[in-house]
Amino acid sequence: MNQQPCLQIETPRLRLVAVSPQLLEAETQRYTVLSTMLDAEIPEGWPPPSLIPLKPWFREQIFLHPEKTGWFLWYGILRRALSDVLILSTGFLEPPDIQGGVEIGYALMDPWRGQGLATEAALALVDWAFLHPEVRFIRARIARGNLASGRILKRCGFEHTDPDPLKPAIDRYIRYR
């Protein structure tokens, strides 16, 4: 990143960058600014469509709680020889709750699906979350029938749990420390 120090996680193929208020403001203003700050190309169609309805809520949380950077959104940047590219968004819905739980999610741009990149990002965030002693478990919710997300969660060590009685179209997963 060119402009500021930030919280980052490196994996074999990815650089995960925690979304700060400054990065979020850059994304809101112009993608050229965000591209410079991340030192990565912003692909056509960014952000992933499944993230769009959640953006206002995440924006509010990130600006209200800048000290909680890392417990909300992360950018996933694929490292490439010529230029890096922003390919996914991942993160948590909120900081750990009173029971020690956090909820993970991820959204990958279509051209990069099926390459194990969402699994790589999710595993890195699971490891990061479990570095914090207050985190006892990580949960995930996905739409029933989303087999790809279910496989990602299973590869990350999550177990399928009982369906949500209030939302029968949602499958729930959990992973304990």
Score class of each variant (00 low, 15 high):
N2L: 14
Q4P: 00
E10G: 01
R13A: 11
R13F: 08
L24V: 05
A26H: 09
E27D: 03
T28Y: 05
R30W: 07
Y31S: 10
T32W: 07
T32C: 05
T32E: 13
S35Q: 10
I42N: 04
G45L: 07
P48H: 09
P49V: 11
L54N: 09
K55S: 07
E60S: 14
F63W: 08
L64S: 15
H65N: 08
H65P: 01
W71D: 02
L73V: 09
L82H: 15
S83P: 01
D84Q: 03
S89M: 15
T90L: 11
P96R: 03
P96W: 05
P96N: 01
I98P: 00
G100T: 00
E103Y: 00
Y106F: 15
Y106P: 02
A107W: 12
D110R: 14
W112C: 02
G114A: 06
Q115F: 14
T119D: 08
E120R: 05
A122Q: 00
A122R: 01
L125A: 03
D127A: 13
W128A: 09
L131E: 08
P133L: 08
I138G: 05
R141W: 03
I142Y: 05
N146G: 07
S149W: 06
G150N: 04
I152E: 08
K154E: 12
K154T: 12
D164W: 07
L166Q: 14
A169V: 06
Y176G: 05
R177L: 12
R177S: 15
R177P: 07
